[in-house]
């Protein structure tokens, strides 16, 4: 039944958030530490475990994958309720700090990802277009 999948997802979600809160309390910060990440790891483990034992029929999987597919619409709804007005009113400090931080991080990401050995395998002809986008966004 589809609800089994959704229930499994719900249990992993709750358990992960709970463990995240617990972890936060243990190290003395008033926030959830990696709760969603823990929930994701729990779900991955649950899937591997149940798959091996044949406990994961297609309909059960559908109960999870539906919510995975709802992800982008949920993000659109999330974007629609950000305090964009305040973000723009923050003035040059907020914008400069954010842009500076991102520029530095983007360069670091680009640097680290260029060390990945198998990254360029399938796209040998692309570097020229990469350079172009790089210039545009820099």
């Amino acid at each position: 039944m589809i609800i089994y999948g959704t229930a499994l997802l719900a249990v992993c979600h709750l358990l992960g958030i709970f463990l995240g809160d617990l972890l936060g309390a243990l190290i003395g910060v008033k926030t959830n530490v990696g709760g969603v990440g823990i929930a994701m790891i729990l779900l991955i483990c649950a899937r591997l475990y149940m798959h091996k034992r044949g406990l994961m029929p297609q309909t059960t999987e559908l109960g999870v994958t539906f919510w995975g597919a709802m992800y982008i619409p949920v993000v659109v709804a999330m974007a629609a309720q950000q305090n964009v007005v305040a973000a723009l009113r923050g003035g040059p400090v907020a914008v400069l700090a954010a842009m500076g931080a991102l520029a530095l991080c983007a360069s670091t990401i680009a640097l680290i990802n260029r060390t990945e050995k198998d990254a360029g395998d399938e796209t040998v002809t692309e570097p020229s277009s990469d350079v172009k986008t790089g210039v545009k966004t820099a």
Binding site: L9, A10, C12, H13, G16, I17, G35, V36, A39, M40, I41, L43, I44, R47, L48, E61, V64, T65, F66, W67, G68, M70, Y71, P73, V74, V75, V76, A77, M78, A79, A80, Q81
Partner: peptide, 23 residues
Amino acid sequence: IGLMGGAMLRDFAIVATAFEVQA
């Protein structure tokens, strides 16, 4: 929109995407 894009459903949907992760 506040409920749909709120932390609860957002995290729920994020966790669900882990289903496709290759361990």
